[in-house]
Nucleic acid binder design. Structure first.
Length: 609
RNA sequence: GCCCACAUAGCUCAGUCGGUAGAGCACGUUCUUGGUAAGAACGGGGUCAUCAGUUCGAAUCUGAUUGUGGGCUCCA
C-alpha cells in the first residue's frame, strides 16, 4: 500500500482547502487515519466473504477511501449492504489495530498468497516493512491507523467500479469499492445531501431541462447538437471572446478543419497521438484527416512568407473546430466530446518577448474568467504542468530548453502572485504549460484554459524571423486558449450558474406575460420594440393563467418577467418580476429597456434594475 | 477501450408470477380572462433502445449490438 497509497492520497486531497489552522490540520489527519482504517475494515469484511480474495491497495481519497480486490466473482451493488453490515460488526467488536516491523523475507511469507502484495514488497526500497493487523485481516501498510476499529465513526459504501491494477490498462482489472467516512452520521448525511445537490447542477441534466443541447445516436456519441437556446449561449461566448481578442491585438483567422496527414507528421503530433486521431481519408493521391489540433495550420499561415522581427509577436487566433477520437468510455456530456471548438491561439514571438506575452495572456484569461463569474482560488486554480527529463519518449529531448521554459512560466506565476501548484509529467510533448483547473460541482477537476510554452514546433516547421541584424532567428510559440473549448466552457458555466445565466448569456432575456389576452396587443408592441433593440424577448401568449406563465418562466430561469395588464398598458409601464423573486411595479417601459440594455452591454453578473 | 449497472410516451417514472402497457408533467381542443411559482374538462401520443433466441405467448427470461451512467485508462 505504501507508495501508491501516499500518491493516491495526495491526488485525492481536497482541491481548494484553504484551512491552515493547526487544529484543523490535526483533525484532518485524524479523519484521514480513520478513513484509512475503514479501508482495512472493509478489506476484512471482503476477506470474510471471499476467503480466496486477493488484495490490491486501499488508500484514502477525498471524503473517503477505496480498496481494490481480485475476487472469484464480480460484486454487484446488492453486495454492498452485506459488506457494510460486516464492517459494522467489526466496528462494534472494537478490535485493536496492531503493527510490527518485519523483514522483507518475513513479509513475503506472510503474504505468500497475495501476488499483488508480493509485487509491492519486491519494489520497496526499504529493508523492513510495517504490517498491520486487525481481527483476521493482515495488511502491509505504512499506517498510521486508529487504535481500534471502534474509532471508526460513520461510513457508507458508495459504489463498485473496475480499476486496473496500479492504474495500468495492461494489468488485470480489479474490483474497487468506494466508501466515504466522516466523524459522525450527520456529516455522512450532509455529504450525501451535497452529492444530491451536485446532481441537480449537472450540466447534462440542466442541458436537458433548459433545452440547451441534445445527442442523437444516429449522429454519433460525443457529438453534441446545440439547440436554438444553447446556440445563443455559444454565440454570445464566441462573439465576446473574438471581439476581446481582436481588441488585444490578435489576428483572427479561419483555417480548414482538415488537412493532409503530412502536416501532422511534420509537427510531430502524429506518432504521439495517432490513436486519438480520426483515420485517414484517401482522396485521389492525398491522405487527409480531420484536424485534432490547429497549431500546424497556424504555423503554415506564419510560414507563408518571410517575417520580420517587426511583425512579432505574431498572434494568430481562431475559433478552431477540432476532432479527437476519444475512447468511448471517456465521453461525458459537453465536458468531453469528440468534436469541439477551441478558442485557440498561437503567439509566435522572440524568446525575450515570452514573459511579456505570457503576462498579457494571463491578463486576458483572468479577464475572461472574471466576466464568466469565476473567482480564482474558489472556482479555479493554476497548475504548472511540468515535463520529465527522464522520459524522452513522452517529452521532446532538450533538457536545457525544458529548464528555461519551465522557469519562465514559474516566474510569471510567482510575479503575478498566482495561487498555483506544480504537477510533474503533465506537460505537452513540446513544452510545459500553465493549466487553469476548474472544479465542477461533482468535485472533479478539469482543465478549462491552458497556456503552453513551445520550443519544439518552430524547429519542426522551420519557423524563423529576420532580426534587426539581418540574421534569421528562431522564435518560440505560446499556445493558449482564452476561453477554452466552447463545449467544455458551456458545461462549466451551466454548472456554475445552475442554469441561471447572467442576462447577456440568457437564451431568453425577458418573457412578457400578458395578464389576459386583452393585453396581447400591448405585449406584442413591447416585444417588437425590445427585439428592435437586440433584446431576446418572447410573449407568453398561451391560453394559461398568469400564475402558470410565471411558474414556467421561473423554471426556465428567465431573468426578467414583464407582467402587463390594464395598468401597464394605460401608463406605458411594465411590472417586472426578477428571477430572484424581487418585483419592480410600474416601471416605465423606456426605463426598463435602458437598464436591461446597459446590463447586457456590460455583461453584468447581477440582475438588479 | 476495460469493469459494473442501466435503457418503458417529449420529460420524470410505475408496471406483481411471462398473458402484447399506465401515471404526472409537457402537447392539442374547449371552457375559463385570471395581478406575481401549477384553473378545469376532454383528447392525441409508445414496434417497451435494436436484433436474435427460449416459449402457445416476452416490456418481463437468455445472448449479441447500440446508447447512457459510475469508475479505470486517456485527455495535444
Amino acid at each position: 500500500m505504501l507508495r501508491q497509497a501516499s500518491r493516491a492520497r495526495v491526488g485525492g486531497r481536497s482541491l481548494f482547502s484553504t484551512g491552515s489552522a493547526m487544529d484543523k490540520k490535526e483533525s484532518d489527519e485524524k479523519l484521514e487515519t480513520m478513513r484509512h482504517s475503514a479501508a482495512h475494515v472493509m478489506a476484512e469484511a471482503v476477506q470474510a466473504m471471499f476467503p480466496e480474495a486477493k488484495f490490491g491497495i486501499g488508500p484514502t481519497i477525498e471524503d473517503g477511501f477505496y480498496y481494490d480486490f481480485d475476487l472469484p466473482r464480480t460484486l454487484t451493488p446488492e453486495d454492498l449492504p452485506a459488506i457494510e453490515a460486516r464492517m459494522k460488526e467489526s466496528v462494534k467488536a472494537d478490535t485493536a489495530f496492531t503493527h510490527e516491523l518485519v523483514g522483507k523475507e518475513e513479509a513475503r511469507r506472510i503474504f505468500a498468497h497475495q501476488p499483488y502484495k508480493l509485487e509491492l514488497i519486491d519494489e520497496l526500497p526499504e529493508e523492513m516493512v510495517t504490517v498491520y493487523r486487525q481481527g483476521n485481516f493482515t495488511d502491509m501498510c505504512r499506517g498510521p491507523h486508529v487504535k481500534s476499529t471502534g474509532e471508526i465513526k460513520a461510513f457508507k459504501l458508495m459504489s463498485i467500479a473496475g480499476a486496473y491494477w496500479r492504474g495500468n490498462e495492461k494489468n488485470p482489472m480489479l474490483q474497487r469499492v468506494y466508501g466515504v467516512a466522516f466523524n459522525n452520521q450527520k456529516e455522512v448525511d450532509e455529504y450525501l445531501a451535497r452529492v444530491e445537490e451536485a446532481k441537480k447542477r449537472d450540466h447534462r441534466k440542466i442541458g436537458k431541462d433548459l433545452d440547451l443541447f441534445v445527442f442523437s445516436d444516429l449522429v454519433g456519441k460525443g457529438l453534441p447538437l446545440f439547440t436554438e437556446k444553447g446556440s445563443v449561449i455559444r454565440r454570445e461566448l464566441e462573439r465576446f471572446v473574438v471581439d476581446e481578442e481582436i481588441k488585444r491585438g490578435y489576428k483572427h483567422v479561419y483555417t480548414p478543419d482538415l488537412a493532409n496527414i503530412d502536416l501532422y507528421k511534420t509537427s510531430g503530433h502524429y506518432p504521439y497521438y495517432k490513436d486519438s486521431m480520426y483515420p485517414v481519408m484517401k482522396v485521389d493521391e492525398e491522405e487527409l484527416m480531420l484536424r485534432p489540433m490547429a497549431c500546424p495550420h497556424h504555423f503554415q499561415y506564419y510560414a507563408s512568407k518571410p517575417r520580420s522581427y517587426r511583425e512579432l509577436p505574431f498572434r494568430i487566433a481562431e475559433l478552431a473546430k477540432q476532432f479527437r477520437y476519444e475512447k468511448s468510455g471517456e465521453l461525458t456530456g459537453l465536458m468531453r466530446v469528440r468534436t469541439f471548438c477551441l478558442a485557440d491561439s498561437h503567439i509566435i514571438c522572440q524568446k525575450e518577448q515570452a514573459t511579456g506575452e505570457l503576462n498579457a495572456v494571463m491578463d486576458l484569461i483572468e479577464y475572461v474568467a472574471g466576466v464568466l463569474g469565476y473567482k480564482p482560488g474558489e472556482n479555479f486554480r493554476y497548475r504548472l504542468s511540468l515535463g520529465d527529463r527522464k522520459e524522452d519518449k513522452k517529452y521532446y529531448k532538450d533538457d536545457e530548453a525544458w529548464d528555461i521554459a519551465e522557469n519562465v512560466l514559474r516566474q510569471v506565476l510567482i510575479q503575478r502572485k498566482a495561487n498555483f501548484f506544480e504537477a510533474e509529467r503533465e506537460a505537452a510533448f513540446y513544452g510545459p504549460k500553465i493549466d487553469i483547473q476548474m472544479k465542477n460541482f461533482a468535485g472533479k477537476e478539469d482543465t478549462a484554459f491552458t497556456v503552453q510554452y513551445d520550443f519544439v514546433m518552430p524547429k519542426r516547421f522551420k519557423l524563423t524571423y529576420i532580426d534587426k541584424d539581418g540574421k534569421e532567428k528562431e522564435p518560440i510559440v505560446i499556445h493558449r486558449s482564452s476561453i477554452g473549448a466552447i463545449e467544455r466552457t458551456m458545461a462549466f458555466l451551466i454548472e456554475h450558474y445552475a442554469g441561471a445565466f447572467p442576462v447577456w448569456l440568457s437564451p431568453v432575456q425577458a418573457m412578457i406575460i400578458p395578464i389576459s389576452d386583452q393585453h396581447l396587443d400591448y405585449a406584442h408592441k413591447l416585444e417588437a420594440d425590445l427585439k428592435e433593440n437586440d433584446i431576446r424577448v418572447q410573449v407568453d401568449d398561451r391560453n394559461e393563467r398568469m400564475n402558470q406563465k410565471i411558474r414556467d418562466a421561473q423554471l426556465q430561469k428567465i431573468p426578467y418577467m414583464l407582467v402587463v395588464g390594464d395598468k401597464e398598458a394605460e401608463n406605458g409601464t411594465v411590472s417586472v418580476r426578477l428571477r430572484t423573486g424581487e418585483q419592480v411595479q410600474g416601471l416605465p417601459f423606456a426605463e426598463f429597456k435602458g437598464k436591461i440594455t446597459k446590463l447586457i452591454r456590460e455583461r453584468a453578473s447581477g440582475l438588479a434594475l
